[in-house]
Amino acid sequence: MSSLPEPSEDSRDVEPLIPAEMAARIGEVVASRTAVVEVKEFQRWAASVKDRNPLYFDAEVARANGHPDVPMPPMFLQQVALGVADLDQLRPDGTAGTGNGNLSFPLCPRRMAGGENHTFLLSVYGGDVITQERRIDSIVEKSGRSGRFVLVTWKTTYTNQRDELVAESTSSMIARP
């Protein structure tokens, strides 16, 4: 039995942070969900940001500015179609992974949000029916000041009950060893 060459001293023997079965999922649609916009839900969100913008709470102010009713805060859009977690299936850190594809990077248990980019095209109101479709756009290993990490990027579209595109988003997550 011939022996393999000794591993060199460079980084080629470092185990990749991205398992092959995760890399194979690039392009996959990981969430396609539809939900009705609830005024109370987006008002609770605005209140938790301490954003008491009268546009979100006072229908008269909204109508005076050309809206039929209080508009949803645009930054709430990514919350509208969140799924329902099975608490017995959570990761040890309490995250559910619902809606982003339950991607698993066993060598990178520490996760944090990377960035987000939203283009808002239309206002949304209570009772609107929003369909969110999220796709894995890329999964890449990078190296930064604090070492190696995995960067996952998703692209998401939001459409309403009239099939109008309401918003488009790109978002990312960083997972570190």
Partner: peptide
């Protein structure tokens, strides 16, 4: 807060 009730947010991009 700055754009007021008649302004609208069109694009928003941030990095953590």
């Amino acid at each position: 807060d700055w754009i007021g009730s008649a302004g609208t947010l069109v694009n928003y991009a941030v990095q953590n």
